[in-house]
Design a protein around this nucleic acid. Sequence first.
DNA 1: CCCAGACGATACAGACCTGTATGTTTCGTA
DNA 2: TACGAAACATACAGGTCTGTATCGTCTGGG
Lengths: 207, 207
Amino acid sequence: MSNPLDNAQTADTPGTPVEVRDRVLATASALFYRHGVRAVGVDLIVEKAAVAKTSLYRHFRTKDDLIAAFLQREDEDFWGHWDEVARRHQADPVAELEAHLHWIGERVGRPHYRGCPQLNVAAEFPDADHPARQVALVHKREMRRRLQGIAERLQVQRPDELAGQLSLLINGAFVSSQVLSSGEAIPLLQASARALVSTARQARHQP
Amino acid sequence: MSNPLDNAQTADTPGTPVEVRDRVLATASALFYRHGVRAVGVDLIVEKAAVAKTSLYRHFRTKDDLIAAFLQREDEDFWGHWDEVARRHQADPVAELEAHLHWIGERVGRPHYRGCPQLNVAAEFPDADHPARQVALVHKREMRRRLQGIAERLQVQRPDELAGQLSLLINGAFVSSQVLSSGEAIPLLQASARALVSTARQARHQP
DNA sequence: CCCAGACGATACAGACCTGTATGTTTCGTA
DNA sequence: TACGAAACATACAGGTCTGTATCGTCTGGG
């Protein structure tokens, strides 16, 4: 029963359950991100993924669940990058923060960047009880939690405050691509962060 | 049948074109903001505004035009507040910036705050050619333009850079209400701005 | 007093939406 | 080879969406 090769027999053999699920989720993610969630119907997803509609609904109970899975996938991808960058700067929180802002700013400046998926979905679905909103909330809390970890390693007096400030900054970059000229996000983010960190550190030495 | 209040002919005589138009726009704006644009159909607007659907389409060619008018209305309201605050601090750009961040942060912290309408619509409609997106773009450009005006009066070396940083910060506050605790936006915004301004001013005195 | 124009009420066209139901095909495994 | 699970194909139910068409009513200015 539990053959490790059960799934992914060759390169991409359609008919394998996990392969179909992944294909649906990957296709839906791309479409959701590009066109917005409400603008994309399940029929389009099914067509682009070359999958039967029944298969979609076998792996995802409802469209809302698929949306939540989309955000979950983006969440994991995001922290995957984060962890990789963090690992390269274990000993130096200043360099780590700088590096995070670099790759985030690079993403923001990409040609067809469409904003943070979590924030976009939150804008599309006001109901806080929506399953996808739960994922988005956890994602944003995790962002602030990790920033606070860096702030603590920076030994500022109020790491929570600095983390909040950096959160505003990063979320602001996510939604400001419309008004930012190409390549502007990175220096803007880094210069702002330097000012915030520097000020927070000065406060440490003053009563 | 012949209810004397059927059309409420006393205080605000309906039947006047401008009155019907305003009622449609005000109703649509409230619904759009609360529930999202795509989630609100014209039938609901018509019902809540107590107006015939033909009247809606007489004053607004399409729903897209109504959405653009919604953002235009929000834009005018926003700059109305801004101008009023700016007028009270004509001589002191530091105090003006502080005051702007105060009322913006106050808005962000309100119980049912749902984010910046311009950013929400931009998230819902990826197509940059959408009429409403034009309004949103002009709004965000105007925001940065005004911030640059303040930065110039602060006599920092690179007012454009400071304006960009403050833009990120403010837009970040607009979308971060989900992760901000009540009343946190104002101090976070003001402390960040102070750090950014202070750093930008120090750069002025250094080669 | 008359009439153009704004409004209301309603029905409808045509498209799209999510989700289900039904039947067939494929394929690994027992 | 026979079985069961999963995928495919297709049709459809039931609702919603935008926008239009039709027709009756009210109102204000000439």
